[in-house]
Design a protein around this nucleic acid. Structure first.
Lengths: 151, 151
DNA sequence: ATAGATGCAAACTCTTTGCAGGTCG
DNA sequence: CGACCTGCAAAGAGTTTGCATCTAT
């Protein structure tokens, strides 16, 4: 679904191993666009490797993110992971809580402008959109901005 | 430092009381631009009201955010609160972890454009910048993107 | 007077860590 | 074979909740 953004050879080159749990964890995150939580990945990986532990899932997600294989993202309900490490923005539906990928606005000038204004070194920027997605719009109803619990 | 963005009369109008802990909690958040955590607010409030509980601080921060008196913000280290509820963006320094307010880009067209592209109802958008702030730049040194712990 | 708020302690959720044993290369 | 990794269980960190008591209005 999402292209592999980085070769796994890099792993071995750093003395890291490609174990079965690790491979499956990475596959699960890359196979979905749901910006999964650790718990979600755990449930999925367990279908093929029932003895895996949640701690291993956490350790690997953290490590894979640190190595640049995944993107990490803080959420009011905890950490989420994203197999798509290319530049893109996010749209969060306030009704169903789903997070959609949306194309990034490629505006190089935005960073330069802020840098000029503040004197900061601006290395990255990301825009978050909030609203109601197509599905929730069709279902009508108010936007229940109720606090989302774990997936 | 930051202007009161919303009158407290609104509170009473909704049958909510303006208690001493509540007033102090709101004051603390409004008196700083550090985007404080609950723990930070707790320590500050305790200086004037030593018997407050951390639970009360949490309850009030949550409630004040829900009522629109404060803005809530998820962070890899937990929730942060912002007394500035006006439109503005954030710059996070990857070296020191500080979060600066920066003027929002007023671009109404951005939302309309995304809505047209996706069919979503886009109600809000916010841009997050990342880099190295002026102070950290002057101090030189690499940008240690180490995980920030609690304030 | 009384609905709403508080303090305290316990419960919860998510994440991290110590350690003995297993495994990739 | 040896460094790295895993499962398990326990500990941490942050936040929420139940309940008896208190207090704004």
């Amino acid at each position: 679904m999402i292209p592999n953004n980085k070769g796994l050879d890099t792993l071995r080159a750093r003395g890291l191993r490609l174990t079965r749990p690790r491979r499956l964890i990475l596959d699960v995150v890359r196979a979905t666009d749901a910006h999964p939580t650790a718990a979600f990945v755990y449930r999925r990986v367990r279908r093929r490797l029932p003895r895996v532990s949640l701690a291993t899932v956490h350790r690997n997600l953290r490590m894979l993110a640190a190595e640049g294989f995944l993107a990490e993202r803080a959420d009011e309900a905890g950490m989420r992971f994203d197999g798509n490490t290319g530049p893109h923005d996010h749209f969060t539906c306030l009704a169903c809580g789903r997070i959609y990928d949306v194309p990034a606005r490629a505006e190089a000038g935005v960073r330069r402008r802020l840098a000029a204004r503040t004197g900061f070194e601006v290395l990255d920027h990301r825009t978050e959109y909030y609203g109601r997605c197509g599905a929730c719009r069709r279902q009508g109803g108010r936007s229940p901005v109720t606090r989302q619990r774990r997936s």
